[in-house]
């Protein structure tokens, strides 16, 4: 309880810093917390804002679906096959630290302007950490579980379904958490450059028209939603990790 109170105090402190920065930097650069939230409330009442928001979350949903299913599938397979995993790991790590935004022209050439380019950018951002986490999850499974499975003479399918996946779930959720953040990032980058719709586009447009309150309101709302979803996943993550010994 005290911890939540402390966290809230911290939020308050951050808001004060924000207000201070506003007094320092002035109207042209920053909107105050009050202006930002007032603008956010206005935006939430306009239908066009909801069209942009639903476009963003639709793209995010598709991107997550692809990144999670493909990423976990590939990751589990690489984790189970030792040699393939060893071959792939350094390549994956290199891809992870590659600034994927530089691939954006290729994506645009491939998919054209529109929702598929955003989804593709989301997928290439999110899928790599999900693969890496899933692979690590399988490798971290206690060898005695595999031995037990052999003594009970499980088939390969049974092994995956009833031992590997349940044993890996805590780590899979950790991977999902990181994957979610990066997928959102990828989708927003796509919207900032390769789209006429979505919240990323809204941010870019308000910069173009020097509409600082709108820009900040959208950013803050995005950050809030992202933190909220991430917190939920974090909660799940902690619970699952506590269950395992």
């Amino acid at each position: 309880m005290r911890q939540i109170l402390d966290s809230l105090l911290l939020v308050l402190a951050l808001a004060l810093v924000w207000q201070g920065l506003y007094w320092l930097a002035g109207d042209l650069a920053l909107a105050s917390p009050a202006q930002t939230f007032a603008r956010a409330a206005e935006l939430l009442a306009t239908p066009s804002f909801w069209r942009h928001a639903s476009e963003t979350f639709l793209a995010l949903g598709y991107a997550l679906l692809i990144a999670v299913t493909a990423g976990m599938g590939i990751g589990l397979a690489l984790g189970m096959h030792r040699l393939s995993g060893e071959v792939a790991e350094p390549v994956l790590v290199s891809l992870y630290s590659l600034p994927k935004i530089t691939l954006y022209p290729v994506i645009l050439l491939l998919f054209g302007l529109g929702i598929s380019a955003k989804i593709a950018l989301g997928v290439i951002h999110g899928i790599i950490p999900i693969i890496i986490f899933s692979m690590g999850a399988v490798r971290a499974i206690a060898p005695v579980y595999f031995k037990t499975a052999r003594v009970l003479r499980l088939s390969r399918g049974q092994l995956v379904r009833t031992v590997i996946v349940p044993a890996a779930i805590p780590e899979l959720v950790s991977g999902l958490r990181v994957g979610f953040s990066l997928t959102l990032l990828g989708v927003l980058i796509g919207e900032m450059f390769a789209s006429q719709r979505g919240l990323g586009y809204l941010v870019m447009k308000s910069i173009g028209t020097l509409d600082v309150p709108t820009m900040m309101a959208v950013i803050v709302m995005l950050a809030l939603v992202a933190v909220l979803i991430s917190s939920l996943l974090l909660y799940l993550d902690h619970r699952l990790h506590r269950r395992a010994l």
């Binding site: 206690a142 005695v144 031995k147 037990t148 003594v151 269950r243 395992a244």
Partner: peptide, 20 residues
């Protein structure tokens, strides 16, 4: 190469599945 039916093994490590 495989465990024949009729043999059971108990290991030293904790092999109870924590999710069940």
């Amino acid at each position: 190469g495989s465990v024949p039916p009729g043999i059971g093994v108990v290991f030293q490590e904790n092999a109870a599945f924590p999710w069940l």
